[in-house]
Amino acid sequence: MFEARLIQGSVLKKMIDAIKDIVTDINLDCSSTGISVQAMDSGHVCLVLIELGSDGFEPYRCDRNITLGLGLKALSVVVRCANNDDSITIKAQEGTDNINFVFESPNGEKTSQFEIKLMDIDSEHLGIPDTEYDSVVKMPSHEFQRICRDMSQLGDSIVVACTKDGIQFSASGDMGSGKINLRQSSLVDKEEDQINIELNDPVHLTFALRYLNYFTKATPLSPTVTLSLKAESPLCVTYPIGDFGSMKFFLAPKIDD
């Protein structure tokens, strides 16, 4: 038996919105410690990793490790039927080919039940190594979204450069070019507005903006985002989910032919 109740059901809605343009099917890997999802886009260019600790759910019950394969289209349709303040309970019995969703309004007056057929999804798991990054930049998530959106007006690729002076995003195309510089903030009222730059080594990488713009669909999940960069390695874009999980996107850099 697997059962997990998320008090803030809107978090699940936001998670699905964040990935539905990148991946079509996902496997929920459920264990006693929590739920994880690893999925790649059809071109195998980027990778999504969601990790949710069991402490984010009340109750959480997972008697045996179980993998639940779901089509995102169906999941998206069902989850959209929940109100933002509903709690969402996910239930699956061993040996059945269905997953159940129960939505409950805060006062308990309205409950809705939906069922989705499980799918057998053949997904390849990649081992993500522990990486010591050259630079780790934490910034407001809406700021990163804005930069990616603005830069994609100019070109298909964005150059991200971290130095002791800060982080620079640049793009160029037929129309012209643009550069945006961010420096570490000194005095900021709210922690979530802070730009924090940890620099071990200067780093200079190029990424496809198409994917970064997909990643920024996760902006509603968190006021902050962390970019972890290392030369010749995939970028890791992390959105924390409350204090119990995270959504990470990995994107390989574009490299010279």
Binding site: H44, V45, L47, H125, P129, P234, A252, K254, I255, D257
Partner: peptide, 14 residues
Amino acid sequence: GKTQHPMYEYFLKK
């Protein structure tokens, strides 16, 4: 020009 390499070249299959 620059090209995009797939994830397989960075992360090993489990």
